[in-house]
Design a protein around this nucleic acid. Structure first.
Lengths: 209, 209
DNA sequence: CATAGTTCTGAACGGTAATTCAGTTCTGAA
DNA sequence: TTCAGAACTGAATTACCGTTCAGAACTATG
């Protein structure tokens, strides 16, 4: 019977089911690609459908709304990343080692899920170009300071480009969070950020006294 | 003459000029407030005009487009912040001290320009709620690790809430930047971020050997 | 083939909001 | 008081998508 042959190496479902699954996967792949590169607002349903080589209406046979697709994509990936990090940290006891393992796992996962991570952690919406440009002003500053600090022997020889991104990213997030509260003094926020950047979070392994 | 009296204590321009300047300032103030609290897309021109107590059309007598207003606001403030930081760092020589002064100046400026800094560094667009929620998963994780690290004496006693924001902010920015390139290995990025967080950028003042 | 069901299509609909503009109100010099 | 020009108004225009839907195309069985 043709049916048997057709379904023989499929794990489940009829040919129709597989066709459906394929269309869905194509839409999802197109959506990931476009959302990651152009951001939510700039990505039109018509674009996604066209990229998946189906008609506009077909999109709605597979996803209820544009927002639902976006939300599912983002949440599902974040949860998987979190689980993977948890699994990796689980057998490790020391907090310092835990932190190290978490960071390793995080970047490995990001590397394997580039498109969605660009959505999750990227700036790509309408004004991101403008905001990027503005952040760049600060990043350039930090890069310079890092480079000259390294030259003077005051800073460790980390790549200035990475340090620039890292510090401005930290400042950006901390600032937006801090500006919404009023229970943390400017002295504490300044001091914590400064010490974090200068000396890190770790306590020295064997303090002399 | 009425004109003399009217213009006596104005630094420049006629009454009309001042009226015009006032309307413009009111629109700008309303825009800052609304953009900071609701984000770009959720802020309608009609809202801004209403908040400034003028008609919708009046907006366009002062600004060519909504985007232009947004862009001007953001760029102008960023440049002022940069200038202020430069002025503060200028007389300082040591890179470590420069970094400290830059951070102090940054937060003082942010504090004095809250509205625009919420636009500049804040997440407030349509999906920021979703993305915030997702980031929160990672932030919670870092907070936990920080708290238990402090308890174990492995980490310095920084407020876990601040450390959570700081680390996820750094990861977020670095990740989005790194994912767009292919000239930095996963080992270097992981290692730099990890060492930055653990021990900071500073070289120890007086290494024993 | 015939046909019932399934999948797909893309033009049309509806809501939203930026922008325009024809007309109104205000201002101040004469 | 008059009136030209400046400032303002908000309904109408326009553009832009997300979403729907009536029908076309395809598929698999008898």
């Amino acid at each position: 019977m043709p049916i048997d042959i057709a379904t023989a190496h499929a794990f489940e479902g009829s040919r129709q089911d597989r066709r459906r699954a394929r269309t869905r996967a194509e839409l999802l792949a197109a959506a990931k690609r476009l959302l990651a590169s152009k951001g939510f607002h700039a990505t039109k349903i018509a674009d996604i459908a066209a990229a998946a080589d189906v008609g506009t209406g077909t999109f709605y046979l597979y996803f209820p709304t544009k927002e639902a697709l976006f939300s599912d994509l983002v949440k599902e990936t974040a949860l998987r990343a979190k689980e993977e990090m948890d699994r990796a940290k689980e057998p490790v006891a020391d907090p310092r080692a835990k932190a190290r393992v978490a960071i390793e796992t995080f970047f490995r996962f990001a590397d394997r899920n580039r498109d969605v991570f660009k959505i999750l952690f990227g700036h790509s919406a309408q004004f991101d170009e403008l905001l990027r440009e503005v952040h760049q002003v600060f990043i350039a500053d930090v890069e310079e300071n890092q480079a000259s600090g390294v030259a003077a022997g005051a800073f460790k020889p980390f790549r200035p480009a990475i340090v620039g991104q890292a510090i401005v990213g930290m400042l950006s997030q901390v600032t937006s969070w801090w500006l919404e509260r009023d229970d943390i003094s400017i002295e504490e926020i300044t001091d914590t950020v400064h010490r974090l950047l200068q000396d890190g979070i770790a306590v020295k392994e064997n303090p002399h006294e």
